[in-house]
Amino acid sequence: MKWLPLLLSLVLFSGMSFGLMAQESEPVIRPVAPRAADTLVMLPDGSTVHVELAKTEAEREYGLMGRTSLPQGHGMLFIHDRPGQYGYWMYHCKIGLDIVWMDEDHRIVEMSPNTPPCKGKASTCPSYGGHATSTYVLELPVGSIKAHDLQVGQTVNFNLS
């Protein structure tokens, strides 16, 4: 039994080494099939946006990765389990986006217009937003924030039930 502590040490050290190596490599994000854009969101100016919902961790992680376009009037609504400060990045995104953070009352608390895609490695992709507490994040085509004159403090209407 004298070898048991040595064996445990080796296993723990191996696990830590593997974890460090995994952090240095590019993250593996499993693809998620596109969801139907069958939820309507009403912007403060009265226009509507057809959104896909990203409710699970896997859906939120994958988001709009790999998309080569996002038509006007369409987007993705990310639903977090609880209020928090959620930074978003554009890793593996091929298109720029306007990003809008909302609190649990659907009030806009932060925005990132014209957010560029990240064409480099994960370690080179900056994070956007996450400075204000939010529950929902809406990704829209570039130019939507300006076109709809979105402002912090305005309310976005949607029903998730």
Rank of each mutant, 00 (worst) to 15 (best):
E59N: 02
H74Y: 14
L10D: 02
M102E: 02
M90E: 04
F78C: 01
L97V: 07
T133A: 09
Y86S: 06
G96H: 10
L97F: 02
I95G: 03
Q72L: 10
G87T: 01
P34T: 09
E104V: 03
I108R: 11
L7M: 13
A37W: 02
H148S: 04
I145T: 04
T48L: 11
I108T: 07
I95D: 01
L53S: 02
G73T: 08
R35E: 15
M21W: 11
E26P: 12
E139V: 09
G129I: 03
L70V: 10
K121Q: 12
R30Q: 14
I79F: 05
H50C: 06
L77R: 03
D38C: 06
L140S: 07
G120C: 11
S134G: 10
L140Q: 04
R82S: 13
M76A: 00
L40T: 13
Y128W: 15
T115L: 02
T39K: 15
F158D: 03
I95L: 04
I95S: 01
L97D: 05
Y86L: 08
E104G: 00
M65A: 07
G120F: 01
H92Y: 00
Y62W: 13
E139K: 08
G153Q: 07
Q154A: 01
L6V: 15
N159R: 11
K146A: 15
A36H: 04
M76T: 08
